[in-house]
């Protein structure tokens, strides 16, 4: 009996100390992790809308959560004169193995301004070709993706992006066109 008390106590002490240590580390890294994620998003938005006001992007009023598995949320993008210049949708497209996380920017006229990837874990050299500009540039300026060719050998990956962009466009046309809903 004494032996089991001893064993339990030793394990308890080790687990307790490691739990405490992890709590401390978590507190230390919580801020920088959130910052790193926000910076990645901000860089993506800036690639799409050169004149975007990145400070306004952080404002929670400008983030609209959507109840959808693919279309996660959208951000209202302002320029420095506080005019709405477009919307950026955060999309999780079902890739070959995991979700392809990207953002797509749509300007107030309903044309795609660009795509920026947040996380792609497709087959290197095959599925990751969705990142190539040859592919992403095809979306710029369109308001309907049906004429965009998918990449042969990366059908699932490129379809995930293509469908994601179309979903964002559909949402825009249904809910945001005219831009008055949010005022």
């Amino acid at each position: 009996m004494k032996k089991y008390v001893h064993l339990t106590l030793v394990l308890f002490i080790i687990a307790f100390l490691s739990g405490f240590l992890l709590g401390v580390v978590n507190e230390l890294t919580k801020g920088p992790i959130a910052e790193a994620q926000a910076r990645k998003l901000a860089n993506g938005v800036q690639n799409i809308f050169k004149d975007a006001n990145l400070e306004a992007l952080k404002d929670e009023n400008n983030i609209v959560k959507l109840n959808d598995k693919t279309l996660l949320e959208y951000y209202i993008v302002y320029n420095n004169d506080e005019e709405i210049i477009g919307y950026v949708f955060s999309v999780d497209g079902p890739g070959a193995y995991k979700a392809i996380q990207f953002i797509v920017g749509i300007d107030v006229n309903g044309k795609v301004r660009g795509i920026s990837y947040l996380n792609v874990e497709e087959t290197p050299g095959l599925g990751t070709r969705v990142k190539n500009e040859d592919f992403t540039n095809n979306f710029i300026g369109v308001d309907d993706v049906s004429n965009v060719d998918i990449i042969s050998g990366a059908t699932k990956s490129s379809n995930a992006v293509k469908n994601g962009v179309q979903r964002a466009l559909d949402y825009f046309n249904k809910n945001l066109k005219g831009g008055t809903n949010n005022e």
Binding site: L22, V25, L28, T29, P32, I33, A36, Q37, R39, K40
Partner: peptide, 15 residues
């Protein structure tokens, strides 16, 4: 414990 610490620090400083 050590791995989780590495994981968190990497996420914070080498995203």
């Amino acid at each position: 414990t050590v791995v989780t610490i590495v994981d968190l620090f990497m996420q914070a400083y080498a995203y």
